[in-house]
Nucleic acid binder design. Sequence first.
DNA 1: GGTTCTTCTGTAACGGGTTACATCGCAAAG
DNA 2: CTTTGCGATGTAACCCGTTACAGAAGAACC
Lengths: 341, 341
Amino acid sequence: MSSSSNRATSIRQVARQAGVSIATVSRALTTPDKVSDKTLKKVLAQVERSRYKPNLLARNFRSKRAFSIVVLVPNIANPFFAEIIRGIEQVAQQHGYAVLLGDTEGREDREAYYVGLVETRQADGLIQLHPRLPKAARGANGTLDIPLVNACEYIEDAPCPRVGIDNAAAAREMTAYLLGLGHKRIGVILGPDSSPLTSDRLRGYKLALRSAKIAADDSLIAQGDFTMSSGSTAAEQLFKTRQPPTALFCFNDEMALGAIRFLKRTGRAVPQDVSVVGFDDIEFASFCDPPLTTIEQPTREIGNKAMSLLFDMLNGGKPEPTMHTLPIKLVVRDSAAPPKR
Amino acid sequence: MSSSSNRATSIRQVARQAGVSIATVSRALTTPDKVSDKTLKKVLAQVERSRYKPNLLARNFRSKRAFSIVVLVPNIANPFFAEIIRGIEQVAQQHGYAVLLGDTEGREDREAYYVGLVETRQADGLIQLHPRLPKAARGANGTLDIPLVNACEYIEDAPCPRVGIDNAAAAREMTAYLLGLGHKRIGVILGPDSSPLTSDRLRGYKLALRSAKIAADDSLIAQGDFTMSSGSTAAEQLFKTRQPPTALFCFNDEMALGAIRFLKRTGRAVPQDVSVVGFDDIEFASFCDPPLTTIEQPTREIGNKAMSLLFDMLNGGKPEPTMHTLPIKLVVRDSAAPPKR
DNA sequence: GGTTCTTCTGTAACGGGTTACATCGCAAAG
DNA sequence: CTTTGCGATGTAACCCGTTACAGAAGAACC
């Protein structure tokens, strides 16, 4: 390939030019207190002069660690995940780890590829944000084959640490809030069935209704898939009925935006005619019209926690399959109000 | 550290158990046609049986390549970048490269950290999406110290390949479109001054006006910073004047959304009273109310191209400081209409 | 001064692959 | 049967750090 001059300065050159052994150079860079002041100064000066950068590929190889981790994201374009990733990166960098981004687009073959990076030691561990245990990750005896942490959308009965929120409690709180405003007919727009989030949030919704002694009504429940357009469609369906809801609880913000769009287009004012609330508190939620009442997830903290847990595992910690629940916050803005009389 | 059993099967074990030399195992896995069919089968069977995964850390160390590249993103939460990243990942994976995500949040120290990954051989090259040449990347003689490609927001006089669109031409096309609808007073909401995009797009705007023999009017130009709230503020400013614009050309979609929000709040209908157009065609542009007329950037292709260029450089190609311009598309939706009479 | 202990430094093995080069075996050619 | 040639295989060096171990130098003590 090409000319040359690609011979980067190696530790041996630095050692020779500084008049010491390679071991001393290595120590000067990694454990400076094991080197006398005089030598240290001499070595560092030479390192500086020859612009020496140790080849971390070699170091990592020796120490059998890649010092990088993979994050599996089902959809990197989703701003909700973006904030989680930031939280992960923050802690990762503190510990000297780089973050390999794995945008799986929900596909299993792409997950397998990224699991392969861990199996072949190019990465040390993996954080999965999608509610699925990657196939290759599960070992023979049901335990984990690779260090793995699950965050956001949790995987049922996964043999790994999990980080997230109490979805049932959050949905219950939101429903109670709408009930408190005086709503009796509260429509729900679900996420996809495959997501455990959906069933948990639905459970919370029903619990709140029961506490308020209001009978659940299946005609108030519509299916969505977390996209804006599905929010529109689902809202349309709910408002075709003879006795439409006075409030809509959408299981994420995108669907809430879609629902609002449908309502406006059909001449219904939000929140005067219909209240709409969401879930997640994505950035856009505060900027839409009207600003959305929603549930704020501690995204940054979820990311932080997930990475901390993974870091512990990489340092010999046992992978307790515990759920780590972080607190949410009900954010009241302008999209929900008491129902019309 | 924990118990043990952490001794992963190595190539030597496989070789012994298959009754061949380590060289043969290596060849069977990397250059199978150099091995006889019989031996190949024998080796692969043993690889399978002992679940051997080669340690790529070792392989990469030997071949002096990390097979990973870094993408510097100023803001990972921006969906526009998300699509570019996908384009990059797509090509990267085809060539066997992993993508290290570098969310810099615009900070130089974080850029430096990621450049460090390349300098220390943990990554082979870098794609910069922000219009700044990372400090550490520029070598003594003005040439590049590391393989680098610049995409999206281009860096002036950078000594590296660049990928993007013709911003002046795109802005000119959009302005001409508004002129074609009959608008004479077209307001502009700029991006930050630091971005070359801003001046290019402004130039295109002025060129279109000149072609139409319309005098430019500085009171029609307002400053923004690519955020939604800055769009609102800038719009407010433009509509305080005695003779406000009949159309607004916002230099990105977020600001257009912010502007629309201001207009609606102040009782102006879009596009009946005021036309608003954006730039980028982010996903939300087609879902807002009204759907936004904007410029679609070939994001996926930009990402593809950037990675292809970087790949070429990594394989001995010279870093020609050429600009690679990709075509844009004017997407007409409902947010622009002829002015009121 | 001699002895012991401590601190610093050097030598060399090591990690897990890849690959240049040597060797071997076998088939084709003479 | 010998020679030649080629494909398949093995041996061992190599990549560039880290680190166990040994040896040297210096400090402290008797």
